[in-house]
């Protein structure tokens, strides 16, 4: 197993507040890595730094050994690193099909002038990418809603649409920001299967999740952070027994219950 993504002493501050501090961990190829921590621990901030939304103030982020610290989101995407958002961000005025088709943006080789002239090569590529979009829709059981306006669908379905969009274009690593948030029990259980299914296709997964059941069940490796610092790292069994983790969560027990 080789390292796909490495964080090395990464930190960032917002207005004097250290949101993430000296954080290091590694995601190996083929792994499912869970990043957990109490509310406000800085999980989404970590994702925003990896995907180029924020620029880290300290440390380095490496992709297959190459430094990608501070690269722009569009460049990060070209590496084969994709993400979902905690608050689903679908293109609101587009159908499910169009949203998922957007995931193939980088797969399209056509130049802009070829598109404006509607040259045969461009037409052929459009047909091919449409077919590939339908494949993904089928795999995630979205074919029946392909033409529906994306934001008119139930929350759980919207999450799946966003996931489908992320998978389009064969990413190497996908980052899931609270994929179980807002799902009911049945949907949450189905999500576990979906995550395993995605890994089967050779995609590495890094997820932030509030739902401990999901994290414990699917993750090969878990990183726990609190107040922006890593407090523990290991497999599900060792994390459950880790005193620092217990302490971090104990004071938050009520919040957790309320959130769940």
């Amino acid at each position: 197993m080789s390292a796909l993504l490495e964080l090395d002493g990464v930190g960032i501050s917002f207005g004097g507040l250290r949101a993430v501090d000296d954080l290091s961990f590694t995601v190996n190829e083929g792994q499912i890595v869970g990043l957990i921590g109490p509310n406000g621990a800085g999980k989404t901030t970590v994702f925003n730094m990896i995907t180029g939304v924020y620029k880290p103030g300290a440390g380095a982020i490496r992709w297959q050994g190459n430094d990608i610290t501070g690269a722009k989101p569009a460049r990060i995407a070209t590496l084969g690193l994709r993400r979902t958002f905690q608050t689903i961000r679908l293109f609101t005025e587009m159908s499910v099909f169009e949203n998922v088709r957007a995931g193939y943006h980088l797969a399209a080789r056509q130049r802009w002038w070829q598109g404006l002239l509607a040259l045969p090569a461009q037409r052929g590529e459009e047909a091919e990418l449409a077919a590939r979009t339908h494949d993904i829709l089928r795999r995630l059981d979205l074919e029946s809603v392909a033409d529906a306006p994306a934001t008119a669908l139930p929350y759980g379905v919207q999450r799946r649409v966003e996931l489908a969009r992320t998978l389009a274009g064969q990413p190497k690593l996908i980052i899931l920001d609270e994929p179980a948030a807002g799902l009911n029990d049945a949907e949450s259980a189905a999500l576990n299967d979906t995550i395993f299914m995605i890994r089967e296709t050779g995609v590495t997964i890094l997820l932030v999740e509030h739902d401990m059941n999901v994290v414990m069940q699917v993750s090969d490796h878990i990183v726990v952070i609190n107040f922006g610092r890593k407090i523990a790292e290991g497999n599900a069994v060792s994390i459950r027994a880790d005193p620092a983790v217990i302490e971090a969560y104990l004071g938050r027990e009520d919040d957790e219950a309320a959130a769940a």
């Binding site: 990060i76 943006h105 802009w112 274009g169």
Partner: peptide, 29 residues
Amino acid sequence: VMRNLDTCEFGRALRYLKQDELAASTLGV
């Protein structure tokens, strides 16, 4: 040309950016 813009990658990229620039850029736009 305007009609072709509707059905080509460049034209769609414009719409992605219009509707959600952050989401679009994480897809490589």
